[in-house]
Simulated assay, not measured.
Amino acid sequence: MTRALERGLKQSQKNYIVNGGMMVSQENNSTAGSATSFYPVDQFEYAVGGTTGVASVAQVANPTPGGSPNRVRVTVTTAAASVNASDVAYLRQKIEGLRMADLQWGTAAAKAITLQFGVKAPAGTYSVALWNGSAARYYVAQYTISAAEANTDVIKSVTILGDQSGTWAKDNTLGCHVFWPLINGSSFQAATVNAWSNISSGNPIGLAGQANLYATLGNIFELFDVGLYEGTAAPSFQLPDFPSELLLCQRYYAKSFLLATNPAQNAGFGGALVAVAATSGAGSISFRQYWPVRMRAAPTVTTYNTNANDANWWDVNGSASRVVGLAEQSDNSCRIVMNATSTAGSQHFIHWTANARM
C-alpha cells in the first residue's frame, strides 16, 4: 500500500465529534455569552458554577491549523485566583449513543479511541474527561501546555482504551460526555487517572493541579479542530463540508431564522413560516412544520413573533399578534396552529426553534 493511499484512508476515518470545526453556530453565531449552558457553537456547551470568576465565551473567526475559519474562545473577564471545592467551568460535547454504537463500549470487544484537539492556552497542566451517558463511569487524562507552547496553537491527543464495563447507550439517548475543564474544584477532581473507574462520589472531570484558567484577568483558552477517532492514532484534522455538518447539527437543534440571525422575539420576517388564514375563526391556520432532518427525539419547540415581543403569530393585515398553539410534536415535524380569530385571507408569520439536545 502506498503512503498516499494510507493517508487517504486515514483522512476518511469517522469523527465521532459533531461540529469539530466549530463552523456551525445556529443559536448564537458570534455573540458572546457568560451564563452556564451556553452554546458558543452547535454541540459544544459551556458550563460554569460556584466560582466568582466570569468568562466571555464565543465563536470567533480565526483560522485554525486544520483549515477551519472558526474556533471557540473563552476569555476571562473577572478573575478568581482561589478555587473552592464547588468551583467548576468546562466545555463539553455530548455524543449520541447511536453515533458511537460501533465502538462497542460496555463489552469485551470495546475499541480504543484517540481524542485529538487543537488548543491555545496559558502554560500549565490540563485535563480531559469522558463519562458514560448515565454518569456512572469516567476516564480522566492530562495534557500539558509547556512554557514554549503557551498561548500558541498546539495539537494535543489522548488515546483511551475502550471501556469494557458499565452501561453505554447504543440508541438515541446520551452515549458519552467529553469534557475540557477550565476550573475544577475538589468536588470535581478524579481519584484515578488514565483508567476507567466508577463514579462513586463527586463529579470527576479533572485532576488536582489542573490549571485554573480564571486565575488571571484576560487569560484565554481556545478550542478548535476537535476529533474523536477509533484507534490508537488520529489522522490530521479534516474540515467537514459545511452543508453536511449543518445537517448533523440540525439533528439536535434547528431553527426557521436565517442562518446568520440569532433566534429572538421581534427579529423580523427573514426565514419565517408564513400562512394565510382560511377563515376568520380560531384554528383557521393549522400548518405542519417539518424539521430539516429527522431529529434525535421529539424536540422542545419555541415560537417567536416576527414583529412583537411575544411568542405568537404576527397578523400582517391586522397589525396584531394572534395566539399560537402547538400540537403533534415529533422527531420529524410539529403542527403549528392559530388559536385566535383573525381576518380571512390575512397573512400570518411566525418563527420557531426545535431543541432535541441531550
Rank of each mutant, 00 (worst) to 15 (best):
L207K: 09
M1K: 08
S12Y: 10
A58T: 01
A150K: 04
N194D: 13
A136Y: 01
A191F: 04
D331G: 08
L228Q: 03
I160C: 07
T114C: 03
S56D: 15
A254Y: 13
T167A: 13
E230T: 01
S157L: 02
S286K: 15
H177A: 01
G20N: 06
A121Y: 11
K94F: 06
G209I: 13
S37G: 01
A354P: 01
Y253V: 10
A297E: 10
T36K: 12
S197L: 08
V119A: 02
G283W: 09
Q189S: 11
Q93F: 06
I336Q: 07
A354N: 02
T173F: 14
T77C: 12
S284Q: 15
V178H: 07
A327W: 03
L326N: 04
F38S: 14
N19E: 03
V140F: 04
N309Y: 11
S37L: 06
R73E: 11
P263D: 00
A311H: 00
N28Y: 10
N203I: 11
V337D: 11
N172M: 10
A79I: 12
A112R: 11
V128Y: 07
C176N: 09
A123T: 01
A85Q: 00
P299C: 07
G21N: 15
I220Y: 12
S319F: 08
P292K: 15
M358H: 12
E328C: 08
R3C: 05
G162T: 08
G124P: 02
A4I: 10
P299G: 08
G21V: 09
T36I: 07
N62P: 00
A195R: 08
A320G: 08
P235W: 11
N28H: 15
R335N: 08
V72C: 01
G50K: 08
L98N: 13
G49A: 14
V60W: 05
W291L: 08
T77D: 11
A297P: 00
Q13Y: 01
H351P: 01
L103V: 07
S244I: 15
G175R: 12
T159V: 11
E45I: 13
N203H: 14
Q59N: 06
Y229D: 06
Y229R: 07
Q11V: 04
F188Y: 15
